[in-house]
Simulated assay, not measured.
Amino acid sequence: MHFIITDASLAKSRAIHLSGTRLVLAFMATALALMIAAAGLYHWVFLKGAREGWPVFGALVKLVTKDDVEQRERFVRENVDAMARRLGEMQAKLVQMEALGERVSGLAGLSPADVRGSPARGGALVSGRPLSLEELQAALSEFERTAGQRVDVLTVIESRLLDQKIRSMMMPTQRPLAAAPLGSAFGWRIDPFTGKQALHTGLDFEAVTGTPIFAASGGVVVAQELHRDYGNMVEIDHGNGISTRYAHTSRAFVKQGDLVKRGQKIAEVGTSGRSTGPHLHFEVLVGGVWQDPRKFLDAGSRPSAGTPVAAASPQPAASRAGR
């Protein structure tokens, strides 16, 4: 495309040649300039009419603003309703958690009233009247407070159950010998050395020399010594005033101050001390008072064994170990 520009005053002309590419670029530049100018003019006229209250422009501004506000309100309402439904579901789960806490509280030694606290409110929050944003915020605050209370109560329950588990693990309920027949039981009998009636303060398990002896529960070794009556003896403190003794051993694999675990090998059967033959004399003491070890061992052999309660009643003087 050729353009010829003629200047009459100078009596000269000028020719301009535009290729296809140049023509397209020129057209696009012109269109862009017109669009910018139109947008600027529209913006200026629109704002001026809105500020000065021109009849046509004022109505347009109100219409556009109203549509925008309605869209925002509809968006907020949909989100508030969705959040309310979700909060209702969470409150329903909180009610289930409260019921579970009441059932578990009995195992932890707590009353249901301690677990229940303030009553939980379940069900959906969205009813016939939609919730306002302020009501939803208040419901969220109440839910957060109630959930915090439940967490505190469940933490207490966990602590109680953990304490009970530790106490049960520290009870001497495991047999000190894997499979050994019971010889002399706990109680009054004829002493094999004096021929007189005496209290046998533990259980005698018959086994050959060298049979492994295991700790009936975890604890600390408070004595490993050669005793006149008990012979080579190991005594373990299990806490809460409970201790066990393992007498007449041939060898001890622990020493005073050692920390032992339940089922750990601590010695081997022998016939040292006041003994008529190889066996293990096993004692359980509560507060320094002899108790019948069978109450503890029988509790450990039951699938749902509870904590054995040993009455710490004074015992008369007795001949200690021996058979």
Rank of each mutant, 00 (worst) to 15 (best):
E89M: 10
G210K: 11
M171T: 05
A179L: 09
K66P: 11
M171V: 02
D68P: 02
G306L: 04
Q264H: 14
V156G: 08
A26Y: 13
A310N: 00
G239Y: 03
R22Y: 09
E52W: 11
S250V: 04
R189I: 01
A317G: 14
V76P: 11
D292Y: 03
R323K: 09
A299K: 04
S319R: 13
E73V: 13
L131Q: 06
T65P: 02
M90F: 10
F75P: 03
V95P: 14
R103K: 13
F214K: 04
L41R: 13
A50K: 14
D114V: 06
G106W: 12
L34T: 07
A92H: 15
Q137M: 13
E206L: 12
V151P: 07
S301M: 05
V80M: 11
D114P: 05
D237F: 01
L41A: 12
V56R: 10
L177I: 12
L23I: 07
L154Q: 02
P192N: 00
Q224F: 09
P55D: 04
A120F: 08
D152K: 14
H248W: 07
R86S: 15
F253Q: 08
T271R: 05
S313K: 12
Y246M: 06
S304C: 03
R160H: 11
D7Y: 13
S118Q: 13
F282T: 02
S19H: 10
E158Q: 09
Q149F: 14
G219D: 00
A124E: 14
I190K: 06
F214I: 04
N232V: 07
A33T: 14
E102F: 04
Q291I: 05
A99T: 10
L133D: 10
D204K: 08
P303Q: 03
Q137D: 04
G20V: 08
R72W: 10
V234H: 01
R262A: 05
R74A: 11
D68I: 04
A252L: 01
L23V: 10
E135N: 08
V45N: 11
A31Q: 10
S9W: 11
W44R: 08
L10I: 13
Y246E: 00
